[in-house]
């Protein structure tokens, strides 16, 4: 029995990737939940917004790389990120002006807005494929690892290695910074407070003189930032493929609903709940088990609860359980 090695293996294969993935999902879910809370519809174009923003970041990264600008050990994409956010923000505000505003003025039912977001989803998906193509793109550069498995083994003398990719470290740090900024904005600034007031009670907010167009504008800008950051981090950590981003819609929505739609704290919690469940249930525990269990009990197979192809099933099952027992989510969200 060798608990330390088991713990290291568990950290290496479950804890570290789960944390990074959770941070990415949390950022995505924050975007969905903000749109739901303030604009009051489920935005089906969110996965494609992430892909769209990431596409800008990738293009600018390539331009930087071509011009010989780099950020040293950290990926160049981080330098490109602000530009990507700005472009995505402009695009989203443009879509709002051209598409969404018309329906908002008419006060249509939320489901009509969802339909409209389907149309936007098609357009964004088409544009992404049109500009950058449907294939995998890798754009990570700089140092690959913070700690390599080999260095860790030499440092500690353990049999198991612990590798932390730079992208994983950057994901967590960036996510923390973004979340802190977001909550500071929502809780401390005048605009943020008016956004929360608008989300809590639209009519009351309008009566007290809050300008709805301004609230909507800021919401789209924040959503653009969140989506682009989430997409870029995911792309750095794994790889960029438009279709994968589209498929992220399901875990992101699951995270937002599990946490409670419209509740930012819930979105973060939901993101980590979904990510850790996915990674834990689809991880082959053979390695961990061989350290913890006596030899006679060691598993023959991979000791994997479900094959990784069923990761969607995990978010789905969690979603159903939450829907059945706590329809407003873990943290109380809106239930309109």
């Amino acid at each position: 029995m060798d608990y330390i090695n088991a713990l290291v293996a568990f950290t290496n294969f479950v804890l570290v990737p789960g944390t990074a993935y959770g941070a990415q999902l949390a950022l995505g879910a924050l975007g969905v939940t903000l749109i739901y809370g303030i604009l009051r519809f489920s935005n089906f174009a969110h996965g494609d917004t992430m892909a769209f923003g990431t596409m800008f970041v990738i293009l600018i990264t390539w331009a930087f790389q071509g011009a010989g600008i780099s950020a040293g050990p950290v990926p160049t994409a981080l330098l490109a990120l602000p530009f990507g956010i700005a472009l995505t923000g402009l695009f989203l505000i443009g879509t709002d002006r051209v598409v969404y505003r018309f329906y908002r003025k008419q006060r249509v039912k939320p489901v009509v807005m969802v339909m409209v977001s389907l149309g936007v989803m098609f357009i964004m998906n088409g544009l992404t494929r049109f500009i950058i193509g449907p294939d995998d793109q890798r754009f990570a550069d700089g140092e690959r690892f913070l700690i390599t498995a080999r260095n860790f083994r030499e440092m500690t003398g353990l049999r198991e290695g612990l590798a932390i990719k730079t992208t994983q470290g950057i994901t967590v740090i960036t996510a923390v910074i973004v979340v802190v900024l977001l909550f500071w904005f929502l809780n401390r600034t005048r605009t943020g407070k008016s956004m929360r007031a608008f989300s809590d009670n639209e009519d009351l907010a309008l009566l007290s003189g809050i300008n709805p167009e301004r609230v909507v504008l800021y919401t789209w800008l924040i959503v653009a930032a969140l989506a682009t950051v989430a997409g870029t981090l995911y792309g750095l950590d794994k790889s960029f493929k438009p279709f994968t981003y589209f498929q992220l819609l399901l875990p992101i929505f699951a995270a937002a609903i599990v946490g409670g739609l419209g509740n930012p704290v819930g979105a973060i919690a939901g993101g980590f709940v979904i990510a850790f469940s996915e990674v834990t249930i689809t991880y082959a525990f053979k390695k961990v088990a061989t350290y913890v269990l006596p030899e006679a009990l060691a598993p023959d197979g991979l000791a994997q609860l479900l094959s990784t192809d069923y990761k969607f099933a995990v978010s789905f099952a969690l979603l159903i359980v939450v829907l059945m027992f706590k329809p407003t989510g873990l943290f109380k969200g809106q239930s309109v």
Partner: peptide, 24 residues
Amino acid sequence: KTALGLRSDYLAIATLGIAEIIIA
């Protein structure tokens, strides 16, 4: 049976999920 009777968007997400699972 699980998703109807809840909010309309929940049915949407539930069906989105079941379709992915069936394909998986």
